[in-house]
Design a binder for these strands. Sequence first.
DNA 1: TATGAATGAGGGTTCATTCAT
DNA 2: CATGAATGAACCCTCATTCAT
Lengths: 179, 179, 179, 179
Amino acid sequence: MNKKQQVINAATTLFSEKGFEKTSMSEICSAANVSKGLVYHHFQSKNEILEKIFSDTTEQMKNISSASGDGSPLNQLLKIIENFFAQLEKDVVTLRLNLNAMFQPSTREFLQTHINERSSILFESVKKIFDQIDLPRSSTLSFMFIAELDGIALSYLSVFDDYPLQDIKEQLLSKYQNL
Amino acid sequence: MNKKQQVINAATTLFSEKGFEKTSMSEICSAANVSKGLVYHHFQSKNEILEKIFSDTTEQMKNISSASGDGSPLNQLLKIIENFFAQLEKDVVTLRLNLNAMFQPSTREFLQTHINERSSILFESVKKIFDQIDLPRSSTLSFMFIAELDGIALSYLSVFDDYPLQDIKEQLLSKYQNL
Amino acid sequence: MNKKQQVINAATTLFSEKGFEKTSMSEICSAANVSKGLVYHHFQSKNEILEKIFSDTTEQMKNISSASGDGSPLNQLLKIIENFFAQLEKDVVTLRLNLNAMFQPSTREFLQTHINERSSILFESVKKIFDQIDLPRSSTLSFMFIAELDGIALSYLSVFDDYPLQDIKEQLLSKYQNL
Amino acid sequence: MNKKQQVINAATTLFSEKGFEKTSMSEICSAANVSKGLVYHHFQSKNEILEKIFSDTTEQMKNISSASGDGSPLNQLLKIIENFFAQLEKDVVTLRLNLNAMFQPSTREFLQTHINERSSILFESVKKIFDQIDLPRSSTLSFMFIAELDGIALSYLSVFDDYPLQDIKEQLLSKYQNL
DNA sequence: TATGAATGAGGGTTCATTCAT
DNA sequence: CATGAATGAACCCTCATTCAT
């Protein structure tokens, strides 16, 4: 019944399926069963809808990241990996939308803040773990760890049709278990 | 003098800077100093321009990939890594455009063939190397190797502002030298 | 005040004067004192405007046809003739547009349904009259009766500059009075 | 091998199938296997191609009309009817094109002369026959005779799907045999 | 909150025509 | 007689946004 949320949901699906630029406000209105006026009552612009979706996702990420704060450093790292794969399987729609928006210069511009926030949150928590394990070059290692995760997401969501996600996950876990 | 190439060059730059959807044919014409009619004389549509750029890039990739065909399996792998970083530094514009087009559902659709071709070429040549080195799970390892490269490209091109590309490169090379 | 009707009126006049293909949406907008967006808010396409005009005309024809339902068969036939000439004199604009659209293959295609409907309505009502008068070959006679009317319209609207419409009408009436 | 004639033939077919406005010069060139430059070497404009087609048809009509110059007035009239039906069956393509061009205001304008010439030729020869038979109101009768023929053409070419052309022809012949 | 008529700039594309070769 | 690259105006249509109700 919450019409604002209906709009967000409809927009999320459409942005993910067709891309942000190719989704019109009219389509969002139809899909959300809502008038144009109402959408502009809740959001100042089409961009703002995307921004809202983005900031919601960032918020979720923060929670996940902080929720993995217990246990030994190694366990925390493994937890991050598992959370990552869990989200990858669960939220294809949102993730695809995020990739789309990040690589579209026009959208990227006004999402910059969120993108930076996300990457530094992830980077900091990973680096902190590597530091606790007392690994040298923790910074470079963190970048590489993140690159691996991002690369897997990219391969799974947008490159290979039959991606052996389970195999990859196990391989990755065993690799980092032996740090 | 070759106006068709002027169009391709102008389009490549603009698509990369502003994204495919946000670049208008008028802008391409202005940038290439060419009339609209001429563009449509050489290309059937805006999509076809992007497709031409994509297929040209694929062709280059093939050449690079086959050019690394000599030496021991390990050396071939290191060569691939080095080629990859070389291209990453040299051709930021084209690579960004490729990422943009791959994550835009509308463009992705008609580029599917090229995307598939590229990924299978890379996958096959990497897997062949791992097989020659006689590593177990060569398929999974290939996927992970590709994920690492893609992830680095993604981080460098679109996530982190100050990415220590040289450090990453060295770390990666030393990691695979000890296979 | 009713802007949709303004559009229809402007389009009817322009289509009739310049032909459907040679009338641009911009011209219709100017003539109707309305923005492009508004036209596309009410109609899905330029074709749809023409279709609306056509279906309105068909509706009128039906009413006229059924309005002549009283009296003896012969009187009904004479009534049809008189209605026909009345419309010919009154609605040159619309009729010319109808001829134009019927002979343009591109428009004809999507108006087919309306054209068929009209011709069968007229044919059926004429044939019914001839059957009541108990004439042999009523079907062929109906076709010929319709051909005469259509041919007169064609001559008057698009062939001869000084067409003696009154003479023709009287001649036709006297011809059928003696059936 | 005569390329000019190839152009005329291709244009005739295309104009008839798609309508004059909807046929592009490029299409004509493709269909005639000829370059744009060549077409503009032979014709000054697209309009001129249509005009050439029209004047050729007019010439044919004149020949047919004068060829029926022998025999009694009544036989001449019957001959006209027979010629008319013969052409109707033989040359659907050209006739449809003629109707299309006559009802398109833009084309009509520059074909006016030809249209007038044709109609007056037909009118004069019919009126002359009626005068020879010594019928009153020969002028009005001529108009009505022409209207009947035109109306039949219209019905056959563009209104009814299954038009009993033979029946109509016989009916018409028997009608005028008893003048 | 909620509607949908209304705007107008700009989108991709088409096309008759010209002209250097 | 023959080609096809090149032009540029015009075309139909889309769309984010505004605003009176």
